[in-house]
Nucleic acid binder design. Structure first.
Length: 131
RNA sequence: ACUACAAGCCGGGUUGUCGCUUCCUGUUUAUUCAGGGGGAGGAAAGUCCGGACAGCACAGGGCGGUGUACCGGUGAAGAGCCGGCCAUGCGGCAGCAAUGCCCUAUGAGAGAAAGUGCCACAGAAAAUAACUGCCCCGGCUUCAUUGACGGGGUAAGGGUGAAAACGCGGGGUAAGAGCCCACGGCCGUUGAUGGUAACAUCAACAGCGGGUAAACCUUGCAUGCUGAAAUGCCACAUAUAGUACCAUUGAGGGCGGCCCGCCCGAGACUGCCUUAGGGCAGGCAUGGUACAGGGUAGGCAGCUUGAGUCUUCGGGGCAACCCGUUGAACAGAUAAAUGACAGCUACUUUGCGCAAGCAGAGAACAGAAUCCGGCUUACAGGCUUGUAGUUAUU
RNA sequence: UGGCCUGUAGCUCAAUGGUAAGAGCCGUUGCCUUAUACGCAACAGGUUAACAGUUCGAAUCUGUUCGGGCCAA
């Protein structure tokens, strides 16, 4: 349990219902190439979904690439966020989209994900997040 | 050696760290952890064809619809592939020409002699050709077979056109005409020979019908419909619910559209009339149509081993391909895994440098979703083979 | 995953296989007006999405490709 740069099945958003709910009621924040949709939940887990629109990336290869980059960046940086959440009584659902039209570089994605995580930490601490 | 074209093949390698998915073994209260194995393509794409598989439907026949179309082979099958036949086009040769032969490329290549339609413009005429011209006859007229008119014959000539009524030469005739003849072309029937066949060659007889079927159509052949969001099971949830209309004994339903014909078809209460059969009214039920809603959208199976793929050797076949045999692997995700970073190296390229080398950049098309066989399209760079051209050497 | 429809001028649409495609709006120029608008006149603007094929001839028929839209538990 020491080094946990993992992102298994349990740590990803997989339910169609949950995702529909998230998009219908969640908060949105845009940070340059990416956009995060997030919401607090009662199930005490930190779940991530990644996506890219069909319109901006018509080729399946590019969509796969974007999703992999987002997941990789999240995997390596999400631990501090998990620590903040550890003591609380709620979980967090996050869905990150790529809004750019062109394939982003790995470094740009890491930076943006880092910003998103800092932002989420702040909101958790100040208790601004609505359920 | 280089360039171009065609065909076939490859589509970077390796080490480390951190991850994802699946299977096996062990372990654990636990889909917890450990170890080991597998993990995108030649097109996974387009969905243009064909199947496998699944569900539903199904006595039969005709019509209709859709697809397809030289012949043979191959294969599970096809609008695929291989071989052949025929036609057409470019080029070359022969010939006055028609045409024939050779080379190469292309072909959705049944039927235009079953019928219907269409063929703009131009042209007399675009398909039962007499506008002009040519010729004959008649009366009239004129110096004159000169002129106009009327009746006929005639497809040789006529600015067109994509296409003009078999081609060319000769005979023949009032003028002409396959009317006749020589050479040649095409079509039909019959016969012979070769070929499995398409077809080819020869002979006889009868002919000369313009094009278009990717216009309608005719003929032969094939053909149920729907597709893994199929389909089966489990869990959760709900409303055998509601409203309107129609039908329920010769009504209706089935044969997926129509027709023939055939088959199926008695579930059912109350009241009134009636000898009975039966009739009328209402209700239940069943079925159908429409409206307006409600619930679920989780899991398991299907799900990856299949007419399979590649490979060694032998055999058959011109070839596609087939038969036997040796060996090797062969993904199963489901908001959807197959990745990220770093080093070394192979390749291409830019700059510096005499060179060795140093530094930087690039690396295509593209991502499985039930599975196969084809076709089509995209593709940096490289390899092999063949053909053609250029240069150099022998 | 499986189907269906569609592509013509900058926009909205026409055109039976037959003049190398037409109308309205838009645009440009001129006239009208002191000026603008309206109006009038003229002009420009198209490889009919691309490539092949059938045909004497293709926007139209056929095939392939590309783009756009829609439907389906």
């Amino acid at each position: 349990m020491a080094s946990q740069f993992t992102l298994g099945k349990k740590e990803r958003l997989k339910s169609r219902k949950a995702i529909d709910h998230l998009f219908a009621k969640g908060n949105k924040k845009t940070i340059q190439p990416l956009r995060a949709v997030y919401m607090l939940t009662n199930d005490k887990s930190l779940l991530l979904g990644a996506g890219a629109s069909n319109k901006n990336f018509p080729k399946a290869t590019d969509r796969n690439r974007v999703k992999r980059l987002i997941r990789e960046a999240w995997r390596l940086q999400k631990n501090e966020l998990a620590e903040k959440l550890a003591g609380k009584a709620f979980g967090l659902h996050v869905f990150i989209l790529c809004t750019d039209r062109e394939l982003p570089a790995y470094t740009a994605v890491t930076l943006a994900v880092k910003k998103i995580i800092h932002l989420l930490e702040k909101e958790i601490e100040s208790g601004q997040l609505l359920k």
